[in-house]
Design a protein around this nucleic acid. Structure first.
Lengths: 334, 334
DNA sequence: CTGAAAGCGCTTACAG
DNA sequence: CTGAAAGCGCTTACAG
């Protein structure tokens, strides 16, 4: 079945192509009679405008690219959903791509986007600057970074939508203090090259120092591989730490899995809180206390700022407060 | 920054647009010298062909639509990843859309796809036939249904890639029998209007009857809402059922969550197995025994069949065997 | 209020 | 081996 074109509609309605186009796009003053004719022909023929052809003439393609590290990760799936939801309401079609935390794949996706002439992109960058990313940026298209940033990219040109670790961190640590904990630890994840994780660690240092004193806080600056997980926790215990903050949720998942469940950790006398309110943490018993980044909010806000930029407004970076959700894994000491 | 076009490349290389086009697409016999010239100009100018313009002239847009019920569901995220991976290797760009188990949103996405002139679509249909779906099908574009089917759609025109519940079901039930269970139950989920779930229930009835005898199998034909979950299990226990198969993983998740964890169910004296090998089932302790649909395989196969259709081959529906993965939730009776 | 014409960036026969 | 021309489906000034 061949596609119905605007020509077919014009022929059917007995008027010119340009008039049909105007009628369809609400341009000029078209007589009601003509509008009706067009409407009818469109219905009868099941005409669907070719957005590619349309895009070639107008400046906009009404498509935007969304790049996430991995769509299989529940956190990013939530983010993608929120972004797509917001954009589709504004009439934009979202291309979702997965970089697999891998520059090659990221670049391939960006080049694809570029060749599709997307109107802009929302990106969760990973690692550093890359060729394709540089090219995308040079295009001067609206681009927003969400959840993570890249060193050396000017927040003036690429606004950032990331969460502010402080509020959630502070509340979590206060809760620990209220429950009698005196020494607290932090496991920071693969902090190298991730400004977000670096900032998170800094937030811990600040808040914890204030509440517990510098001599009572302990930080393990890197995440752990399969083997060392129990070791790290043992080490923390041996210096008297009784409550832990996990800065990187995959570490938490691993710890839970390796230590024989949440209870395995608690039974050692270690309370804990994790970043990221992922589904797993809500489903297992006891539920894991978290510092939520409010990812739907991050995504929604990212999309909104993006839409603002499309409208020509000056972009402005935004922070979303993290929120501490008290659940079962921070227990009274002793 | 304005886009670099083929004209710019031609000018830079000092040759005509058509020659550049031919050189780029490997058509005709172009002299090596000319090829080099083009190559160089492309490099210098950072030329990226406009795929929309290209698509308008050729028949294909090199894009395909992928519709899943909800990308936030880990199962579909895995599926989407597998499909996208396979298609991108073949040079196709995948639009991923979420229907939210909602016909309106599904139709909006399909109409979008149609207006983008996708080369075809891979769809996890939900509910019944809809207007937009009918239109998509009428376009005679390659379409493949994955994971679910729709009543009244001819498998000749829309091949189906779904899993075969029998192998996994049989092995699961055998395991139960080996461990001493004599009466088994099945909770089927929202079976109405879902041929896949219906078939799954049938598979249970067949296999279980064979192994345990008709009088020893019990089926609750609908999934449960929040409240009745414990009730259903109690009812099963009261008739002597000691092992359960969940046909619909959201039911399992709910049961685990409501019954205070996996142990909450096991402690009542109820062993169980669930369909779908989702991440959660692997992370909690004890791990949940599952009947896996091998979703990556489903997705990959769906994409392959789709690509076959694009090449003009006759489509053929495929089955993927389910696989029973024995883990901790089927215990020795007594 | 309506239509003829030009052009978006590309490809594809068709001459040369 | 290379180039001029037509055309994909649409929109957008510009006349009328």
């Amino acid at each position: 079945m061949a596609y119905v074109t605007i020509k077919d509609v014009a022929k059917r309605a007995g008027i010119s192509v340009s008039t049909v186009s105007c009628a369809l796009n609400g341009k000029d003053r078209i007589s009601n009679e003509t509008k009706r004719l067009v409407e009818q022909a469109v219905q009868e023929l099941h005409y669907i405008p070719d957005s590619r052809a349309r895009a070639m003439r107008s400046l906009s393609t009404k498509t935007v690219g969304l790049l996430v590290p991995d769509i299989r990760n529940g956190y990013f799936a939530d983010l993608a959903y929120a972004v797509q939801d917001e954009l589709s309401q504004a009439g934009y079609c979202t291309y979702i791509g997965t970089s697999s935390e891998n520059v090659r794949q990221q670049d391939a996706f960006i080049m694809d986007m570029l060749s599709q002439h997307i109107d802009g992109a929302i990106i969760v960058p990973q690692g550093q600057m890359s060729d394709a990313l540089r090219r995308l940026l040079k295009r001067q298209l609206p681009v927003v970074f969400v959840d993570r940033s890249i060193e050396g990219v000017d927040a003036e040109t690429v606004p950032l939508v990331v969460s502010d670790p402080i509020p959630g961190m502070r509340d979590a640590l206060r809760d620990m203090k209220d429950l009698g904990h005196r020494k607290v630890g932090y496991i920071s994840g693969p902090v190298l090259g991730s400004p977000t994780l670096q900032e998170r660690e800094l937030a811990f240092r600040q808040c914890a120092t204030q509440l517990f004193g510098e001599e009572n806080i302990f930080v393990e600056s890197s995440g752990f591989g399969q083997s060392s997980c129990e070791l790290v926790i043992q080490r923390m215990l041996s210096v008297g730490v009784t409550a832990l903050v996990f800065g990187y949720s995959p570490d938490t998942v691993q710890a839970i899995s390796v230590m024989d469940g949440v209870d395995g950790i608690l039974n050692q006398g270690m309370s804990f809180v994790s970043f990221d309110d992922i589904e797993l943490f809500r489903l297992i018993k006891p539920q894991v206390s978290v510092i939520s980044q409010q990812v739907q909010k991050l995504g929604g806000l990212g999309a909104q700022i993006f839409l603002d930029m499309l409208r020509g407004e000056k972009p402005e970076s935004q922070r979303v407060d993290t929120v501490y959700m008290q659940r079962g894994t921070v227990q009274l000491i002793g």
